[in-house]
Design a protein around this nucleic acid. Structure first.
Length: 438
RNA sequence: GGCCCUAUCGUCUAACGGUUAGGACGUCGGAUUUUCAUUCCGGCAAUCGGAGUUCGAUUCUCCGUGGGGUCACCA
C-alpha cells in the first residue's frame, strides 16, 4: 500500500507553499487508495508554538485534506533515543564531546553520524536520478544529545516506523535526501521513493515564506475564498492532466481519480493571486443558489429594511460583482447594496449628471411612471425593457434611462434600470420615481 | 563560492523528433448595456544563447547564461 505523509513544523502559520506539498501528497495517496499521514514535527521546542499547530490542523480541515493517522514527533523521542543508541552501539554513530555553540564554554555530548562517505544515487519520481557525493557532509550531527534527536534522524525513524512508502515534499529537501538515505541505510530501513515538488514562489520570484509575507491559508478562508477553489488553484501550479492541457477546473473528487506525480512540473511556479481570483469566481458561479444565498446572507441580513424576497432577487446582481465573499462586505460598506432594501436619497446633481435638464428628467420620469401604471403584463426584466425602450429610443436613451436608473438606485453605478425595476417590485418603484419627481 | 535542481507568451501551462507552437489568467480593442458589473467576439504576446545528433529539433546531447534551492547542535 502506498503511504504518504505531510510533515509540517509548527513554527509558523500554514501558507500556500506548505499547503501545496500537502495537497500533492494527499492526492497521491488517495489516487492509489493509500494512506495519508500527518506528522507534526515539533522537535525544535524553542520555535514551537501551539497556535501554529492549531493553525495547521485548522487549515487542513478547512481544505478537506483528511488524514488517516496523526503523529506528534516530540512524543516519539523515546523511540528516537532507542535507535540512536542502537547506532552508537553498532558504531554507526558516536558520541562526541564538544563545546556548546552558544559560547558558554560548556562541553556537551552530541551525537554524530559516522558518515561512510559514499556517493548516493536516488531516484526521484519527478526528476529522475539524482547523484550526490556525501563525503563533504562529514560526520553530521543527528542529536543534540542522545535524548534530543535532530530533524534528519527523527524524520527517517518516523517515516520508517509509519510505513511511509513515498516521501512527497518540497524541492528544498533535495539536498537533505542523501543524508537521510544514509541514516535509513544505517538503520536497515527499507528505502523510500522520493518525489520532490517544485517550490511555489511569490511575485518576487523567491520561495514563499512567512518572512516575505506569504499569507496564512486561513486568511484566504477568512476573506471568503472557497476551499475547493484554493485547492484547484494550488494544483494548477505544477500539475496538469495533459490531453491537450485545456481542462483547468478539477474538483477534489476528480483529482483523487486522475492525479499523477508523473505529470508534475519540474520548475517552480509563481503564485498568481489574479488566477486564484479567477478560480474562486468560477467556483462561486458553480455553487447552487441555496449555497450562494447562505454565503451572502450574513453580510446583508442586518441591513435596514432587509427583505428576504428582494435579497433572493438581487442575489445574481451581487454574485456577478464579487470575487470572494468579503467583497460583499465591501459592497455593503460602499452602499452598493443598501438601496435594494431602502429608498435612496437622490440628488438633482446625480439626475442631471449626464447633462439632461432637471425639467427634462422630471418629464421623462413622469412619462415612465405613467407607462408603468398603465402596464398590466408580467413584471420581469425583459417585459419592462420592451415596455420602456420604445419611449427611450424616441426621447434619447441617455436622457431617459440615466435619470430613471438614478431615481431607483441613487447611485452613479448600479445595475440597469430594467433589472432594478423587476427586482424592486412595483410599489417600491413608483415610490422611488415619485420621490425623485418631487 | 561548493554542491544540487531548473529553463515555452508578463503569469500558470499544452505540444509520439514534423503543429500557422495550442489553451487559461492578466492586458489591450470591439459588440451588448448610453452607468457599473456580467456576457460575447477579436488583438498583442513565448520555445534563454551557442554548438552538435538528425532529412527535420520546443523536444535528444554538450557547453554557456539566467533563475532557484541548499550548505546549522532549524525544520
Amino acid at each position: 500500500m502506498i503511504v504518504t505523509r505531510f510533515a509540517p513544523s509548527p513554527t509558523g502559520y500554514l501558507h500556500a507553499g506548505n499547503y501545496r506539498t500537502a495537497v500533492f501528497a494527499y492526492l497521491y495517496a488517495r489516487k492509489n487508495n493509500g494512506k495519508f499521514i500527518l506528522r507534526i514535527e515539533d522537535t525544535d521546542r524553542a520555535r514551537f508554538d501551539q497556535k501554529y499547530q492549531d493553525n495547521i490542523l485548522e487549515s487542513l480541515s478547512w481544505l478537506g485534506l483528511e488524514y488517516d493517522e496523526l503523529y506528534i514527533q516530540s512524543q516519539r523521542h523515546a523511540r528516537h533515543t532507542e535507535l540512536m543508541q542502537k547506532l552508537v552501539d553498532e558504531d554507526k554513530a558516536y558520541i562526541s564531546h564538544e563545546e556548546a555553540k552558544d559560547g558558554s564554554g560548556t562541553v556537551k555530548q552530541i551525537v554524530r553520524f559516522r558518515n561512510p562517505g559514499t556517493i548516493v544515487t536516488f531516484h526521484d519520481i519527478i526528476r529522475g536520478d539524482i547523484t550526490v557525493d556525501t563525503t563533504d557532509l562529514g560526520d553530521f550531527v543527528i542529536g543534540r544529545s542522545i535524548t534530543e534527536p535532530l530533524f534528519h534522524f527523527a524524520v527517517v525513524v518516523d517515516d520508517s516506523d509509519a510505513g511511509v512508502t513515498h516521501v512527497v515534499r518540497g524541492d528544498d529537501h533535495i539536498a537533505n535526501t542523501p543524508r537521510q538515505i544514509l541514516i535509513a541505510r544505517a538503520l536497515g530501513a527499507t528505502e523510500f521513493q522520493f518525489a520532490h515538488l517544485p517550490l511555489v514562489f511569490g511575485l518576487d520570484k523567491q520561495k514563499l515564506s512567512k518572512r516575505r509575507g506569504a499569507k496564512a491559508l486561513t486568511e484566504y478562508r477568512d476573506e471568503g475564498y472557497l476551499a475547493d477553489a484554493v485547492l484547484n488553484f494550488m494544483i494548477s501550479m505544477g500539475w496538469n492532466i495533459g490531453e491537450g492541457g485545456e481542462q483547468e477546473i478539477f474538483s477534489k473528487k476528480d483529482l483523487c481519480k486522475v492525479f499523477s506525480l508523473e505529470r508534475v512540473q519540474k520548475s517552480p511556479a509563481i503564485f498568481n493571486p489574479e488566477k486564484l481570483d479567477w478560480f474562486n469566481r468560477e467556483y462561486i458561479k458553480q455553487l447552487s443558489e441555496t449555497d450562494q444565498l447562505d454565503a451572502v446572507r450574513p453580510y446583508v441580513q442586518s441591513l435596514s429594511g432587509f427583505d428576504e424576497n428582494i435579497f433572493q432577487k438581487c442575489l445574481p446582481l451581487i454574485i456577478e460583482r464579487v470575487t470572494k465573499w468579503s467583497d460583499v462586505q465591501t459592497m455593503v460598506n460602499t452602499n452598493d447594496i443598501q438601496y435594494y432594501f431602502t429608498d435612496p436619497v437622490v440628488s438633482n446633481d446625480l439626475l442631471t449628471a449626464k447633462g439632461t435638464e432637471i425639467g427634462e428628467c422630471k418629464k421623462h420620469l413622469t412619462a415612465i411612471s405613467e407607462l408603468l401604471q398603465s402596464y398590466t403584463g408580467e413584471w420581469n426584466t425583459d417585459s419592462i425593457k420592451s415596455l420602456i425602450m420604445p419611449y427611450a429610443d424616441e426621447q434619447g436613451r441617455g436622457a431617459v434611462l440615466w435619470p430613471l436608473r438614478c431615481a431607483l438606485s441613487g447611485r452613479e453605478k448600479s445595475p440597469d434600470p430594467f433589472t432594478l425595476i423587476s427586482v424592486l417590485g412595483s410599489e417600491s418603484v413608483f415610490r422611488r420615481i415619485n420621490s425623485s419627481i418631487q
